[in-house]
């Protein structure tokens, strides 16, 4: 019936007219703050980072070592059997070069982003992190070996950014 419909409603406005107040609007900024508790498995992960270790969890039933660790295996739907350290080295599963910040504004120096499959975890168990010590992003390759570069022990606070980034291992 789209060919039978002669008029489609909608009154288009210019973004500029809205931002500059030429169109009546109401402005609001929600002022809500959050404290997210890390929970059972993630607390272990963050405590591990403080000590310079990457913690995974293991499930005996499906034989997986999972990173990030979880308190339960989502495939077998049972509690994990324990926590184990994986290595802080891995391979680049995929990567991107971001010229865009979170608010969609543009940045000059791109952020290098990758999914890194960690050694010692089950195949394909990657984590999201940044890449560093790379002069030309065109030298990044799929499958490239990388290693975590940690903050100094006294600077670590138990967050994912205790690892500054991953750098190429040559």
């Amino acid at each position: 019936m789209s060919e039978k419909i002669k008029h489609f409603p909608g009154e288009s406005l210019k973004g500029r007219d809205i931002r500059e107040g030429r169109v009546p609007t109401i402005k609001h900024r929600p002022n809500v703050k959050y404290l997210w508790s890390a929970g059972v498995a993630m607390s272990r992960f963050l405590e591990g980072l403080k000590k310079g270790k990457i913690v995974g969890s293991s499930c005996k039933k499906c034989q997986r070592i999972m990173v990030p660790p979880r308190a339960f295996c989502e495939e077998c739907f049972r509690p994990v059997d324990g926590y184990t350290n994986v290595k802080d080295t891995g391979t680049i599963n995929t990567y991107s070069v971001s010229y865009v910040a979170g608010d969609a504004s543009r940045i000059k120096e791109p952020i290098l982003v990758a999914v890194i499959d960690l050694d010692g975890a089950s195949k394909g168990m990657g984590i999201l992190h940044l890449l560093g010590e790379i002069d030309d992003w065109k030298t990044i390759k799929f499958g490239m070996k990388v290693k975590a570069v940690w903050k100094l022990p006294e600077e670590r606070t138990g967050t994912i950014t205790d690892i500054k980034y991953f750098k190429p291992m040559e």
């Binding site: 959050y34 995929t94 979170g102 969609a104 999201l128 994912i160």
Partner: peptide, 22 residues
């Protein structure tokens, strides 16, 4: 995820770029 991902400054377009690239 507020703990694993957000401190890295992750934005939506990253994850699509990572998927597209793969």
């Amino acid at each position: 995820d507020p703990i694993y991902s957000r401190p890295l400054g992750v934005t939506l377009i990253w994850i699509f770029a990572l998927e597209m690239h793969r």
